[in-house]
Design a protein around this nucleic acid. Structure first.
Length: 758
DNA sequence: ACTGCCGGGAT
DNA sequence: ATCCCGGCAGT
């Protein structure tokens, strides 16, 4: 701002808000100044009459007394003035006069419009300042502003054409309001999705749309961009499809103009790299990865291991937009990621409704030949019915076990209720070897679950958790007869909720997974394969609740410090760990509500780890799970491509250091099972390694290693040796923001305090 | 939400 | 070397 010093972080100045702009629309902007009542003069008279305004209160914290209803906020809109149908003259933008007289009160409100031709009389202006010169500044009352600390979007009547942001497919999309029916709380938003020329219209509730773009770090934005290969592939053309707005967004909105923005070390900033070479490099890398995952060249689900990415990146790159992760059929590998939503949707539906057992990710590797030879086995307790025809199987379940009336159509595939899916399983011969009861539940991860990083979208999680709870509440009903085998000791809602998933129409599941937009289905926590068919599941496998690695992703316990003063908590002994596991077991896995990641239901499942491993094994990845030291909880998961065509994983000795892929001679008929169980039950091991070759096609052996390292000091990849947070007072605390110049240099630089450091 | 501070970019 | 800031992670 006007002071050379950088603003205090919590100064209200710089806050991003939305304010009414031209045509009754709301535009984003930044508070650049606050005028408190004493200095406030009538907005209309402001520009011409007032003397040069006093320097703005630089360190004005929100909530400070002088902020009251009379306070006026100068908001600099993010768009450029030239683009506006407003009438302030462009010349004024270059006038350095502080009394720019060109400002006219053109807005419907009493806010005055001025153009920032600032008191910065200095000769030199930075590019950023130059940019700002084009910005339009208006003055608003507090009540005019929408944003954090001001009004919320609720209660606002959105005008058609209003630019809004919403979460679509797990990522932020901008769109334009087509219509807002406040009475129905329904906002129709038109968005243009990548890879889809046709804008689509979504119905959202008001609370689901945002006026401001999410405040995401440039890095995250990069990550988002960079790892979305579908998007990349589509980016050759016009990257920025803008909709009807003619207002050009300032570059900084899109994260490109920040001169300080560091080019991410692990992510190329394509935004600033118009030549697409880097994109190509990364695309190629992605292709290679995918080939690694599936040497057969069959199009693969991109589980998303971005090259060189850290743990979080690995997952989040899986954030891979929905379209790119779904279809494994027949696209070769030329552009596996480019799918029309239609295709993707079909694939998804197909996956959800057809695959019932060992699929999830796996299904996509199966070719048609495979499918033809499939056999389905009823998993309902005490029923060993087998059937080659899936429809018949469903019919069998429906009629015999679910006591359903036969639907008119008799077409179980198109039936919207897929409860039957829950009670049968793919019974391929080779599957049978693998599926011992102890292994219990089938992989419940559709690869979508794996690919999508819900932690990236808090809204998404919120929604789903909410839905799950809702579902739990709603579904205390007639399924109890089918529950017996689920959990004997603890019959709380978790199991029921899980169970319930089976009755969710696959298209809804898909929609939920995919899109948290309008549809609000009920409970979706788990996948239909949740254990029910496996009454003899071993206790250990059955209830090892493993909280979602995704939700806690990338949280590394800071257990080591370069600081001597830092006391490192003793790691729990392996026994302790086991006790923990058992406790959790006894507490019952219905603690599903504790799990914040309903999207990867495998986590909730019996032997969920195994399932996940199975899934991941198909991806030829190594999963490294770092557990929090005090719980058996995955604190982070690292997935790395791990191609060992001729080797398999072997269980790690408990003391073995983690993150070392272990190998084992290939060829045990069904290797993963005993190993996993052994580990889980007997061992007390901090490491859990599962091997798995349960793939039904003849892919090369792959392995998965999940290493639960309990209590082993882990460092965040980018912050090894991070010192623990000091207990002592820091300059900030001692002096406060007001006396920042009294801080020690380190504190000023956001470094470890050198004055009060511990 | 706030805060400490690391990593790393800019100058 | 200094300044600055994004962002992670602990509280």
């Amino acid at each position: 701002m006007s002071t050379g010093r950088r603003l205090a972080k919590r100064s209200i100045i710089g806050t991003k808000v939305c304010a009414p702009g031209p045509e009754g629309l709301l535009y984003s902007g930044v508070i650049v100044d606050v005028k408190t009542p004493p200095s406030y003069m009538s907005g209309k008279a402001l520009a011409p009459l007032s003397p040069p305004p006093p320097p703005p209160p630089t360190f004005l914290a929100p909530g400070e007394p002088q902020l009251n209803a009379d306070t006026r906020y100068l908001v600099r809109f993010d768009f450029k003035t030239q683009q506006l149908p407003m009438q302030h003259a462009a010349p004024s933008t270059v006038s350095a006069s502080s009394s720019s007289s060109s400002s006219t009160s053109t807005s419907p409100s009493d806010a005055s419009v001025i153009v920032e031709a600032r008191r910065v009389a200095s000769v030199h202006i930075s590019p950023a300042q130059a940019l700002r010169r084009n910005a339009m500044i208006k003055e608003f009352r507090e009540s005019d502003l929408i944003g954090p600390g001001f009004r919320s979007i609720m209660g606002i009547q959105l005008q058609p054409g209003q630019r809004v942001f919403l979460t679509y497919n797990g990522r932020e999309q901008s769109g334009d309001v087509v219509e807002h029916d406040a009475s129905k709380d329904e906002v129709v938003v038109k968005i243009t999705t990548v890879g889809n020329e046709e804008p689509i219209e979504l119905k959202k509730r008001l609370e689901e749309v945002r006026l401001l773009e999410s405040r995401r770090s440039a890095r995250l934005a990069d990550q988002d961009r960079d790892t979305d290969f579908a998007r990349l592939a589509d980016m050759s053309g016009d990257r920025r499809r803008t909709t009807t707005h003619s207002i050009e967004v300032l570059p900084h909105l899109t994260g490109h103009s920040n001169s300080r923005k560091r080019p991410s070390s692990d992510h190329q900033d394509y935004g600033s790299n118009p030549g697409n070479e880097d994109q190509m490099v990364e695309c190629n890398a992605a292709m290679i990865l995918m080939k690694l995952h599936n040497p057969n060249g069959v199009s693969d689900h991109c589980l998303g291991s971005s090259p060189g990415s850290s743990s979080s990146a690995s997952w989040s790159s899986g954030s891979a937009s929905p379209p790119l992760s779904d279809d494994g059929h027949g696209h070769g590998h030329h552009s596996p990621n480019i799918l029309s939503p239609h295709d993707a949707a079909n694939a998804r539906i197909r996956t959800t409704s057809v695959s019932t057992s060992d699929e999830g990710i796996v299904i996509d590797f199966k070719d048609d030949r495979k499918k033809k030879s499939r056999k389905f086995r009823c998993t309902y307790p005490n029923c060993s019915f087998k059937e080659h025809d899936e429809s018949k199987m469903k019919r069998h379940i429906s009629i015999n076990h679910l006591s359903k009336e036969e639907p008119d159509s008799g077409d179980y595939d198109s039936c919207s209720e897929h409860e039957e899916d829950f009670y049968y399983t793919d019974d391929d011969g080779d599957d049978e070897l693998v599926k011992k009861p102890s292994l219990a539940s089938e992989p419940t991860l559709s690869h979508r679950d794996m690919a999508r990083p819900p932690h990236e979208d808090p809204e998404y999680q919120k929604l789903i958790v909410g839905n799950f709870k809702q579902g739990r509440a709603l579904h205390n009903y007639n399924h109890q007869t089918h529950q017996q085998q689920l959990t004997t000791a603890h019959h709380s809602g978790g199991g029921r909720g899980m169970h319930h998933i089976s009755s969710i129409p696959s298209n809804q599941q898909q929609q939920l997974q995919n899109n948290n937009t309008s549809c609000t289905p009920t409970s979706h926590l788990a996948h239909h394969n949740y254990t029910s068919g496996w009454p003899t599941s071993s206790p250990g496998a059955n209830t090892t609740a493993m909280p979602s690695p995704v939700s806690t992703l990338n949280k590394h316990a800071r257990t080591s410090s370069s600081r001597p003063s830092h006391s490192v908590a003793p790691y729990p002994s392996p026994t302790f760990v086991q006790q923990q596991q058992q406790q959790q077991h006894h507490r019952h896995s219905s603690s599903s509500s504790n799990n914040s990641n309903p999207v990867s239901p495998v986590i909730h499942c019996n032997s969920s780890a195994n399932n996940m491993l199975q899934q991941l094994s198909q991806q030829n990845v190594t999963v490294t799970a770092h557990a929090h030291h005090s719980q058996v909880q995955l604190s982070s998961v690292t997935i790395t491509p791990n191609y060992h065509p001729t080797q398999q994983q072997q269980p790690l000795p408990p003391h073995q250091s983690q993150q070392q892929p272990q190998h084992q001679e290939q060829q045990p008929p069904h290797p993963h099972q005993p190993h996993v169980r052994g580990q889980q039950q007997s061992t007390a091991s901090n490491n859990l390694v599962a091997t798995n070759n349960n793939n039904n096609n003849s892919m090369p052996l792959q392995h998965v290693a999940v290493q639960q390292s309990v209590g082993v000091a882990k460092h965040t990849p980018n912050s090894p040796n991070r010192r623990t947070r000091g207990e002592n007072k820091k300059c900030r605390k001692v002096y406060g923001m007001e006396k920042r110049d009294q801080w020690c240099t380190q504190c000023r630089w956001k470094k470890a305090c050198s004055r009060f450091g511990d």
